[in-house]
Amino acid sequence: MFDMVSRWYKRRFSDPHAVSLVAILLVGFVTIYFFGNLIAPLLVAIVLAYLLEWPVSKLTQLGIPRTLSVVVALLTFFSLALIALFGLVPTIWTQVGNLVNDIPNMYNGLQHTLVELPKKYPELASFEIVESLVTNAKNQMISVGESVVKGSLASLVSLATLAVYLILVPLLVFFLLKDKQEMIAMASGMLPRNRKLATKVWDEMNEQISNYIRGKVMEILIVGGVSYVTFAILDLRYSALLAVLVGFSVLIPYIGAAAVTVPVAMVGLFQWGLSSEFYYLLIAYGIIQALDGNVLVPILFSEAVNLHPVAIIVAVLVFGGLWGFWGVFFAIPLATLVKAVWNALPGLDEGESAPAAD
């Protein structure tokens, strides 16, 4: 066993370029794991810089100086973001307030439905089970209420953090875009000289991350927009709030779509009951999710979808547990990175057989 591990180690890490690649990855992992909260504004700025690099490059190709291209792209992006923010936030805030006011009625309706189940279907439900479900639902409602109170108290800290982000992030994005080549050259000077494999992996991942971020933003906008139009046509309550939830649910592959199904179904059930409108809602929502997973995702992420669904879910769980939101957001690129690093590390040449054990 020891000989087998020793041979594997020599095959994979006898090359100094492979050692440099692993060392760079370990330093990056430790930095983000222990200092992720401190450098969060930088991470946000890097994501936005990747997102805006495409329009900046297009403007530069038209002969516009890069600094002016960066200014135009930033002003356009943040103007559209502010318009969307001030147009969407009041509506969502109003719907959140209406939803909070309706929660007691929704709970009473759910309780009444559960109580009626033993009468309608005595062979499927008993009063003891229903009583247990009602008690658990009541405890959950109390827990949610306590969480809302704690969240409102913590919102002051969140507002202060948001104010810092609103100042630092645009400045960081500006300099990351304006001085891109200088910063890459400076970072390259700090890396080991034996970095052929690291450069190979970087060239592959840099393009993939850029495409992934642009594709993920487009997916959020398309899925959220289509969901809002669908919910509005069906006259579903809290359509804007639910559409935002559906849009952002695509950040978590597979798990997000399953989780957001619950509030959509609950609101529809409370509004219409087990009527034809409720089933139309479920059918329409199912079609949106099917088109997203089978049409939109393969188009936007043609390379990433080569990963097996189990690998993607494991990546979400592992990297989300390590780095929270950023781990979930970059779960697919990180899984692709692991695959690229494994393929880049030196191994047995094709046709070469492993030496026999002593």
Rank of each mutant, 00 (worst) to 15 (best):
L317H: 00
G320D: 01
V310H: 00
A344G: 13
G320M: 03
V341G: 14
G320T: 01
G327V: 00
E352R: 11
V316C: 04
T336I: 07
F325D: 05
L345Y: 11
L307V: 00
E352V: 13
L345G: 14
F319L: 02
W323F: 15
D349K: 15
P309Q: 06
I332P: 04
V316K: 04
W323P: 10
I313E: 00
L322E: 07
D349A: 14
L322W: 12
P346F: 09
D349L: 12
V310K: 06
G327W: 00
E352L: 10
A335K: 10
V328N: 03
V316T: 03
L322D: 06
A354S: 14
A354F: 07
L345H: 12
V314E: 03
V341I: 12
E352F: 11
I313R: 05
F329Q: 07
V341K: 14
V341M: 12
I312V: 13
T336M: 15
L337M: 15
L334G: 06
V318C: 06
A315M: 02
L337K: 10
W326I: 01
W323G: 12
K339E: 04
V338P: 09
G351F: 08
V310C: 03
A331G: 03
V314S: 05
F330T: 05
L322G: 08
V316Y: 01
N343G: 03
V341D: 11
W326P: 01
G351R: 09
L307T: 02
P346Y: 10
E352H: 13
V316L: 02
I312A: 07
W342E: 14
F319Q: 03
G347Q: 11
V338T: 11
P346T: 13
G320I: 00
L348K: 14
F329L: 13
W323T: 08
V318L: 10
V310G: 03
A335F: 04
G321I: 01
G351K: 11
E350G: 10
N343Q: 09
V314A: 10
F329A: 12
G324A: 02
L348S: 15
I332T: 09
F330A: 11
G347L: 08
A354C: 08
L322I: 13
L307F: 00
V314T: 05
K339D: 05
A335H: 03
V328W: 01
S353W: 06
V314P: 03
A315Q: 06
V328E: 02
A315I: 02
A311P: 00
K339R: 12
G324L: 02
F325G: 08
A340N: 09
H308G: 09
L334T: 06
D349E: 15
V318R: 07
V328D: 01
T336D: 09
G347D: 09
K339L: 01
I312M: 07
V314F: 05
W326D: 00
G327M: 04
A335R: 11
V310A: 13
L334H: 07
L334Q: 07
V310R: 06
H308K: 12
E350Q: 13
A344D: 10
H308W: 02
V341W: 09
A331R: 05
G321H: 04
V310L: 11
V341A: 15
L345P: 13
I312Y: 04
V314I: 09
P346C: 15
V316P: 04
